[in-house]
């Protein structure tokens, strides 16, 4: 209890930063759920590939130790690489694992199985990445990239955590500020995109009633593809921010984070964009408060208990499920 009171603002701010990452990943789950009504179990791997793309690009560019404008450039570049890779993986995922099922009108549980399969394939492919290069004889040359595939891969030392200003006794660091600001920018852009643009209107239309949307001339397949790609971009952004905060990634890094993000999406009301954002922040902060109260080893338990309690009182999540509605 004491811990919570003394470090209240520290816990809040670090909770918000991790919550922002949850929220960005949760957007991918919620968007796909909104239009397809299925849990995209493999979204966590989309995130993981983004994190590797960022690490590799920054390694290849020898980004460690950059300062000033160069640093900003490298951070942006890493973020863009992560977004591109995640978007690509999400795109392929939709093409390979979901579209054939949709064509055959499979029941939703089968899509879950396909997604589980895809998730295994993606994460194991990353975990076995040394093998194909070993056959080609390139493993020594590329050891930094593909060596020790089951271990942690660190981000090149890029951004050193420095305190910027004091906020009620907590020294807010530059990493906190970067994560929160860039996450909020991405969220606002996405929210406005879905609310105002023509493509966003298509997404909302399909989420509301796929059949009527098709009758009104919305290309169902294109909207679904777009949804996956947007979810991938958000996951990529989240991957870069995650690297800044945690510093390492590995072939199964997406797993727990994916479960947390999915929890966040459900917490806010799955299918609802703002719900996913709220859910992410609430989850991140609540986890921190919870670990201050009962010990950090119970962090994940706090998260899941919170979920169960909230679902008991609000069975459709905090904000309800309504991607289709204008309030989106």
């Amino acid at each position: 209890m004491n811990l919570l009171i003394h470090h209240f603002w520290e816990l809040t701010i670090t909770g918000l930063t991790i919550g922002a990452i949850y929220a960005l990943v949760a957007l991918g789950y919620t968007l796909v759920y909104g239009v397809l009504r299925l849990i995209n179990f493999a979204h966590s791997e989309v995130f993981m590939y983004g994190s590797f793309a960022a690490v590799w690009v920054l390694m290849a560019l020898n980004a460690a130790g950059a300062t000033g404008l160069g640093l900003v450039g490298f951070l942006l570049l890493g973020g863009i690489a992560a977004m591109a890779a995640s978007a690509l993986v999400a795109f392929i995922l939709e093409l390979v694992a979901y579209r054939p099922l949709r064509k055959r009108n499979s029941p939703p549980l089968i899509a879950l199985i396909s997604a589980i399969g895809a998730s295994f394939v993606l994460s194991e492919a990353m975990g076995l990445r040394d093998k194909p290069f070993a056959w080609l004889g390139l493993d020594a040359k590329l050891a930094d990239y593909v060596g020790r595939p089951r271990e942690n891969t660190p981000l090149p030392a890029l951004l050193h955590s420095q305190k910027l200003f004091n906020f009620f006794g907590y020294n807010v660091t530059n990493v906190d500020v970067i994560i929160l600001v860039s996450a909020i920018i991405m969220m606002v852009v996405l929210d406005q995109f879905v609310r105002r643009s023509r493509l966003g209107r298509g997404i909302r239309a399909v989420a509301m009633d796929a059949e009527s949307a098709a009758l009104m001339g919305v290309n169902h397949n294109r909207v679904i593809r777009l949804t996956f790609v947007i979810g991938g971009i958000m996951a990529g952004g989240a991957a870069m921010l995650y690297l800044l905060k945690i510093g390492v990634t590995r072939y199964n890094a997406g797993f727990i984070l994916g479960i947390k993000a999915f929890t966040a999406a459900v917490l806010g009301g799955i299918g609802n964009l703002r719900g996913a954002l709220l859910g992410g922040f609430v989850l991140g902060v609540a986890e921190n408060y919870g670990s201050a109260l009962v010990g950090s080893q119970w962090k994940d338990v706090v998260a899941f208990v919170l979920l169960i309690v909230i679902l008991l009182f609000r069975p459709t999540g905090l904000l309800g499920e309504s991607l289709g509605k204008a309030r989106a």
């Binding site: 199985i113 895809a118 998730s119």
Partner: peptide
């Protein structure tokens, strides 16, 4: 053994598509 889970994942995907 190394590729066990990879193959398992592929099998699940193939099954979902060809024998839902």
């Amino acid at each position: 053994s190394d590729a066990r889970f990879l193959l398992f994942g592929m099998a699940l995907m193939a099954l979902a598509i060809f024998r839902p």
